[in-house]
Design a protein around this nucleic acid. Structure first.
Length: 742
DNA sequence: GATACTTCAATGCG
DNA sequence: CCGCATTGAAGTAT
């Protein structure tokens, strides 16, 4: 994480050539006018076509745009990275049948492709008998973890892929269990029903073909940690969704986080179970968490509530406890003002948040005391209120500290409290310190180093977007017109009008009379905090024809930016996009704004034409598995499980002349953002929009990236030198980097 | 290995 | 927007 200090920065404003800066400013922006009706959400520009609700005045902000645009000087400054395309790992390799046009009302209108066709033949055979029906419970119970097999390399595995864990795997027939020979090629979990009930109890650990292998359960790595966290959150979102709609299978789920954590724990979706001092493999300084359970699952801090985690080790004479990690999040009166020093309070003596008794030198307190003498490293997690969602907390892993002093003092209530002074080991990447800087930028106490413009949208978005360069002399991206949404400037096909829902005020999860919810297969696509639950071929949001208010929870992607973003200069990839705020997995980030075009021009100006193009017909990696694993719940509905789908109708967007922040998002072969087609209206798929959501939690100041995919033509063409020239060398740096993109 | 105990949660309500 | 009560699960200790 870059902290904003210690980096090369642009000269102070005094030495700045302001005229040049102003020159940049022409990032002209258009603020869309608001329809007069309250029925339309803010910042949504309806295409100039009906139907419109009564009182809705179509607005054409782009009438004279052509002129102004052409005057825009095309001094395009190639952004090497910002190349074309997009997408986030979506799968469209198989032609998928997706219903088009008028959507029949049945719940689950967009079904995933039929499993039968997708399952490799040899596998269909293996799973024979499991397909489409529940596995009988008798097989479940008492089925131990698959026999561990030691392969040539000596690694121990449970029927899994070479990379050590299974993304999602179809359950093998019983006679194949324990053998990994026939399972290598399996890609997706299909329609196998795992008859595990949510509260089936800790006994039913039966199916462990999913999850994390036994080696990684003890010692993880980055990939496994990501996998565990993504799986957990997918499950948590689904439980939350069920809870919101009051249709939770096992009664009320008050705490989706605990329930999801419990299921993950009992099914082996966890890693780094072996307790350890110091570094936890796969967990990096700066990583963020939104639930205590997440830190348990990855072995960073294994106490679900307690602030001090410790383990017994052999001491000089006998076993003694040593502290492993602590969470400082305001539960006690800590001093967390300094970002390198933490005065941490001991535990105990409290009742309902109040100090009612002297603390004793036992448990965590004793461990901290021993760790002071032993001078061992202690992991520190800092928790604080989430600015975006003040009811919730965010936790940041702030790296290793050592305990320098301890003492006892009288607390405000007069009781004795232990205090421990922890000092951060030098040389670690900044984490909490960066949060403090950001807080100061927001409060206006200090200004962002390298800030070129406080808001490059000139007010077109409801939150400012900073333009920053603290690495070189570039004063800004090439001229373009900022516009917050999609422009359908040409014709589009309206097959037939359809009508919005009849919900007044807001659509409510679980209301199956709401036609918008029906179109989403009966599920409300978002949780109460505007988090996307699952990827789907299409998300149906309420549109202008719906009478519900703009704050209806089914209008997430159309209500604009919510987090404070910045467009920043990268070291070697042109401009990029990142956030000042921490982002939860499933958070809507932005849509891909621009002008809808017919096709990408080939040849000619080359290069120029495919800069800033988003094209759904490109070929995308289909390996992203983001949705919850249905086998973990006792569900009969599986619409969300398959993520191998195709965009209902092709959409090509050019953001070269007109666009929003999305045009700055760079490519990565290991992205943290995916794209998802969203339909705002009930008319026609030509009204598609492309929305970006976070794949995983993204710490502040971490660049957003998605997978640009590969131009379709190149998939079939011979790799002529011409073709290769059009590709761009990928600088994402991921271990899974394909080497090029575009 | 059952069970009690402790604990810097997370939510929802008023 | 807050304080409060309620519900909770992992790990540790017994």
């Amino acid at each position: 994480m870059e902290g904003g200090s210690g980096h090369t920065s642009v000269p102070p404003s005094s030495s700045f050539d302001k005229s040049r800066v102003l020159d940049v400013k022409p990032l002209r922006s258009l603020v869309p006018l608001m329809p007069t009706s309250t029925q339309a959400p803010p910042f949504v520009c309806s295409p100039p076509f009906g139907p419109f609700p009564p009182g809705f005045t179509p607005f054409y902000p782009f009438c004279n745009l052509q002129g102004s645009q052409s005057s825009a000087e095309p001094h395009k400054q190639a952004n090497p990275t910002r190349a074309t395309n997009q997408d986030g790992g979506f799968p469209f390799s198989h032609p998928t049948q997706t219903p088009v046009g008028p959507i029949p009302a049945p719940i689950r209108s967009f079904r995933a492709p039929q499993p039968a066709t997708a399952v490799p033949p040899h596998f269909s055979g293996a799973s024979n008998g499991d397909t489409g029906s529940s596995i009988d419970t008798s097989r479940e119970v008492g089925t131990p973890l698959p026999t561990q097999s030691v392969n040539a390399g000596g690694s121990v595995g449970l029927a899994m892929k070479e990379d050590g864990f299974i993304k999602s795997q179809k359950r093998a027939a019983p006679h194949l269990r324990g053998s990994n020979s026939s399972q290598k090629k399996m890609k997706k979990s299909q329609d196998v029903t795992f008859s595990l009930s949510v509260d089936g109890g800790k006994g039913s650990v039966g199916n462990s073909l999913m999850g994390v292998n036994s080696v990684h359960r003890d010692d993880g790595n980055r990939e496994v940690v990501d996998y565990v966290l993504i799986s957990f959150d997918a499950l948590r979102r689904r439980l939350s969704q069920l809870e919101d709609s009051k249709e939770s299978p096992a009664g009320i789920i008050r705490r989706a986080d605990l329930k999801a954590g419990n299921i993950s724990m009992s099914k082996g979706f966890r890693t780094n179970m072996r307790k350890r001092i110091g570094v936890v493999p796969g967990v990096e300084i700066g990583d963020i968490f939104f639930f205590r359970m997440e830190m348990c699952l990855v072995g960073l801090h294994s106490q679900s509530m307690a602030g001090i985690d410790y383990m017994n080790v052999r001491g000089d004479l006998e076993e003694e406890p040593v502290a492993l990690s602590i969470v400082s999040s305001g539960g006690y009166d800590d001093d967390a003002e300094d970002s390198d020093v933490l005065i941490y309070s001991g535990q105990g003596g409290t009742k309902k948040d109040k100090q009612v008794a002297d603390q004793k030198l036992e448990r965590g307190n004793l461990a901290l005391e021993r760790s002071l003498r032993r001078a061992n490293e202690v992991r520190v997690i800092r928790g604080m209120k989430d600015a975006v969602n003040p009811a919730a907390k965010v936790y940041v892993y702030d790296g290793l500290y050592t305990i320098k002093e301890s003492w006892m003092e009288k607390g405000k209530s007069g009781c004795n409290i232990f205090k421990y002074k922890l000092v951060r080991l030098p040389g670690q990447p900044v984490a909490f310190a960066a949060w403090k800087s950001i807080q100061k930028w927001k409060e206006g106490f200090t200004s962002r180093v390298g800030l070129i413009l406080p808001d490059l949208t000139s007010g077109a978005e409801s939150v400012p977007v900073s333009l920053v360069n603290d690495v070189d002399d570039e004063k800004g991206p090439a001229y373009f017109t900022y516009f917050p949404t999609l422009k359908y400037s040409k014709s589009f096909k309206l097959t037939q009008p359809s009508f919005g829902c009849n919900c007044h005020n807001a659509c409510l999860p679980g209301d199956l009379n709401c036609s918008c919810i029906q179109k989403n297969g009966g599920d409300f696509p978002y949780t109460a905090n505007r988090i996307l639950v699952s990827r789907k071929p299409l998300i149906h949001e309420c549109g202008p024809t719906c009478p519900c208010f703009p704050n209806c929870k089914n209008r997430v992607s159309q209500t604009g930016l919510k987090v404070h973003l910045e467009v920043f200069r990268t070291k070697d990839r042109g401009w990029g996009l990142r956030s000042w705020d921490p982002i939860r997995a499933g958070t809507f980030i932005c849509e891909y704004a621009g002008e809808v075009i017919d096709k990408v021009k080939q040849g000619g100006d080359e290069g120029e034409n495919d800069e800033y193009i988003f094209d759904t017909t490109r070929v995308y990696d289909n390996s992203l598995k983001w949705n919850y694993e249905p086998g973990l719940l006792d569900e009969e509905r599986y619409a969300d499980s398959d993520e191998d789908f195709k965009v209902p109708s092709p959409l090509i967007i050019s953001a070269k002349n007109v666009g929003n922040v999305a045009r700055f998002m760079n490519h990565s072969c290991s992205p943290n953002v995916f794209w998802q087609p969203v339909l705002y209206e009930h008319n026609n798929e030509s009204f598609l929009h492309i929305a970006f959501y976070a794949i995983k939690h993204i710490p502040p100041m971490t660049e957003f990236t998605y997978d640009y995919g590969i131009a379709q033509s190149e998939k079939f063409e011979a790799q002529s030198s011409d073709t290769l020239n059009r590709k761009k060398k990928c600088l994402c740096g991921s271990s899974k980097c394909r080497g090029y993109f575009g």
